[in-house]
Design a protein around this nucleic acid. Sequence first.
DNA 1: CCGCCCTCTGTGAGCGCTAACAATACCCGG
DNA 2: CCGGGTATTGTTAGCGCTCACAGAGGGCGG
Lengths: 352, 352
Amino acid sequence: MSQTARNDQTRRAPTMADVAQVAGVSHQTVSRVLSNHPNVRESTRAEVQRAIEQLGYRRNSSARALVTRRTLALGVVACNPTLFGPSSTMFGLEEAARDEGYMVSSVTLRTYTAPALKDAIDQLSDWGVEGIVVIVPHRAAVGALAELKLPFPVVTVEGGHSLPIAGVSVDQELGARLVTGHLLEAGHRTVWHVAGPPDWLEAGARTQGWRATLEEAGAEVPPPLAGDWTPLSGYRAGQELVGRMTGVGARGGALPVTAVFVANDQMALGVLRAFREAGLSVPGKVAIAGFDDIPEAEFFAPPLTTVRQDFAAVGQASIRMLIDQLESGVVRPDERVVIEPRLIVRGSSTPT
Amino acid sequence: MSQTARNDQTRRAPTMADVAQVAGVSHQTVSRVLSNHPNVRESTRAEVQRAIEQLGYRRNSSARALVTRRTLALGVVACNPTLFGPSSTMFGLEEAARDEGYMVSSVTLRTYTAPALKDAIDQLSDWGVEGIVVIVPHRAAVGALAELKLPFPVVTVEGGHSLPIAGVSVDQELGARLVTGHLLEAGHRTVWHVAGPPDWLEAGARTQGWRATLEEAGAEVPPPLAGDWTPLSGYRAGQELVGRMTGVGARGGALPVTAVFVANDQMALGVLRAFREAGLSVPGKVAIAGFDDIPEAEFFAPPLTTVRQDFAAVGQASIRMLIDQLESGVVRPDERVVIEPRLIVRGSSTPT
DNA sequence: CCGCCCTCTGTGAGCGCTAACAATACCCGG
DNA sequence: CCGGGTATTGTTAGCGCTCACAGAGGGCGG
């Protein structure tokens, strides 16, 4: 314990040189042991290991990063992480990164403006990340991102396919087609739609898929209502729909409301409540379907038909893509991974 | 653009020396400008700024960290972040840290074992974090944490108050007392309880508050059921309770099931479904209350009485505590911040 | 008009580590 | 018993930055 007689300065973390001294070797040998270099005699290796443990030595990551020019750090820019989708994605992403030996640090955006995004990215890059994943499915933000010309690889999640940035996404349009088709097949003359905020790419794609399906089936396309992903906004939209069903005479055309595709499960919950309060049974009077398959959806009243997205897979795919670009040194702005969603049919859309 | 004639080696990020050369000053002056040192002539400062912009220079954080011995990095160890509470906490925490100029990187645990926790912390500290926040409200994990004797400050979130580690938490017991009291006041002879996993500290505290309230009121204490936080487990517990209400003759004592306090909102959703399926109206036949106040709770059928926790405040408080210890250099293992929860009464517990 | 202080700028060292090379020891066939 | 490899270890030179100190001007009181 009284290893180094002269080492009683202010307690400072032990350095490689300290370990070397204790083990009776050079600092370079310690380095070799640490990085598992083959050409180290077994006995020496053991000696060094012992010294490391005795001193509680830990390699200084800053010094290492300085000379190797690798920080092994990745950044994630995310929007409101209390939403189920983004937070699940981040979970999968973080796990995948850790498995590959990278650390990830995240910045969450308060607002979805271009300057906020730029700030976030600046912070991340000031901090030395080698690449970033941007989970900001927001039209303006993605546009701003494309113009930034960053000096490191970027991968977007749900960033749309129009811009030349590598990206991973779930096929939102397909998901919307699946639900809408399902509703149509159940015999509904048309399907109403409560959309997400228009500046969200996912919302746009879902609306798009819904509309296309109706048109292809020759069904009339009712005007979509809009929400902001929250249950409350869904509730309001639901009340609006209730008004169209029970109001004195249909306003405008007499397109019946018998099926509603809601752009996410949280809003669907609000819609459900609005119908319940109006005494309109689901699925008796109206069939409802959502999107996302949050863990609660199965237990709604009634259980919600919805579209399941594999968020963890999205996270993993994005990290893999990022690391791949990083380690190959090749930036592939056209790379795309599209993950297929799956229709989950439950009681809210089936007469049973 | 053809600034440095000889600088056409492999494109490498510009260094402070490059900036200095372009601005016609020494690298030290550049450093001074960057760190806002007062003693720099205004014209010089402008010159340097221009050079910085022209070159797109960014200070190398590793080099800086190496010499200053400050990484300005904080770590967070979290459990399953798809749960509403933890992810909201992380959100608040990350924001607070960023405001203070720190970056945070997180590691999520797959399992709640002591080795997993140790691994996570090792990774974080290998990466040079200056302190960590541990959001692992798990009995075993917190115990393991206490024994680790880490060389940097640690703050726990919901880690209980028995161990000498600084911590922030919501007064879970108070929350449980509030709901249970509310139910008792509504005239119920007793209140049943669907608890969380027994090894979660929060679950224990909630059960504790529930039991104490019943005992103090002289009410009989029914055996608590247990769930695992998921809606499904709540559903199962709900079925069990339904069995006790409608079963042929009460098994054991005939303690009536007229009120249930469920340890979180997700499980309460499951319980709600079980009663609904059994044709038992809520709150007509049974009053139900949850805990957390997730955004969906207000839109359940019926809207759920619950206890609101200010997760963002928890995150902020924990970061403030951590940074405080960091910058003062004083570790305060006895420091505690307790945040009061609030009862939110909704339709699931009021006869209206 | 000199010396002192204050403002501004430059020089040198070194943070803890890895990479490249140099050095040493050891083994083998001839 | 010697030359040339191979395994193992040491030496040196930075990575890009900040800190401590040294130097160079300029203003001003005496």
